[in-house]
């Protein structure tokens, strides 16, 4: 069992009616897919806001960061960096920059 710290963008914290970061217990391999499953089960109102409800594809303007890396383009079943799985570093879900 891993405890993953997840930091959400402000608009999603508002939807989920939470402050601060989320701690999720993950059974089995800690991957982006597993983290998002656990997140969406605890906060059903977030379904569809991070990834498509049917294809499970990440929405285009969402990014996953962790340990100073962009994890967005990794396959969703790729194990997360160890520092995230131990709770030392958070898993960041970020709204992509919009220029202009």
């Amino acid at each position: 069992m891993n405890t993953i710290r997840v930091i959400l963008p402000a608009h999603l914290r508002t939807l989920a009616r939470i402050d601060g970061e989320v701690k999720l217990e993950i059974e089995g391999p800690a991957t982006p897919h597993a983290v998002l499953n656990a997140l969406e089960i605890r906060y059903p109102m977030l379904r569809g806001t991070i990834r498509d409800q049917v294809t499970r594809q990440r929405r285009p303007f969402i990014r996953f960061f962790g340990c100073g890396q962009d994890l967005s383009h990794e396959p969703p079943d790729t194990p997360l960096p160890e520092a995230i799985t131990t709770g030392e570093e958070p898993f960041l879900i970020v709204g992509a920059m919009a220029g202009g």
Partner: peptide, 26 residues
């Protein structure tokens, strides 16, 4: 409020995947 899963009802489908919510237009 988002008219999603009512309190007390399962938030996952029998296969373990999260249930669709009020923003699911397929």
């Amino acid at each position: 409020f988002q008219p999603g899963t009512p309190p007390g009802e399962p938030t996952t489908a029998p296969d373990g995947t999260p249930q669709g919510e009020s923003n699911k237009f397929v």
